[in-house]
Design a protein around this nucleic acid. Sequence first.
DNA 1: CCACGGATCAGCT
DNA 2: GCTGATCCGTGGA
Length: 185
Amino acid sequence: MEILPRSFYDRNAKEVAPEILGMHLVRTIAGETHVGRIVEVEAYLGPHDLAAHTSKGRTKRTSVMFGPPGYAYVYLIYGMYHCLNAVTGPGDHASAVLIRALEPISGIVGATNGPGRLCRAMDIDLTLYGYDLTLGGDLTIARPSEPGEPFTIAVGPRIGVDYAKEWVLEPLRFSIAGNPFLSRR
DNA sequence: CCACGGATCAGCT
DNA sequence: GCTGATCCGTGGA
């Protein structure tokens, strides 16, 4: 199992997003390891992308995205759910990839087909805001040692961004075609 | 200070 | 398909 290095994240979110499909999200809590295969993601490109949180400028909430890539951007949505992103680049480009769905591999309890649900199942909250994903610590992303079955990548518009004007239909949602653990819709 | 709304989900009709 | 839950970041006064 190879921990993805910072150079993996140090590219445009549009390039990183399809390549992160099939990678393993590894969460360690109190010595227990939970592993899920990433099957659905969305790219948020930067301040010019009206669907991205960084389009509102640099704030305390979004500050981690304005820094170097390879860190976790976790935020609270609708007062009840957390969402996990990996900050991408290049450099301090203020872009990120949202992890939307996982296929359970080991140790996972609860549903993981949706960004809010997977954070609940993996016990991901604001304490992991800004966590370095390249350390191989409590939260990391790794290339599985077994490549697994080849898959087709499905592309479509992002979910829940109706406010984003001309960006609503941008094909920035990537998923493993036909995977049974995709989020609904 | 106060008001607003969201990168969601579950439950009901 | 529609709505309520639930709360903090954000922006305007």
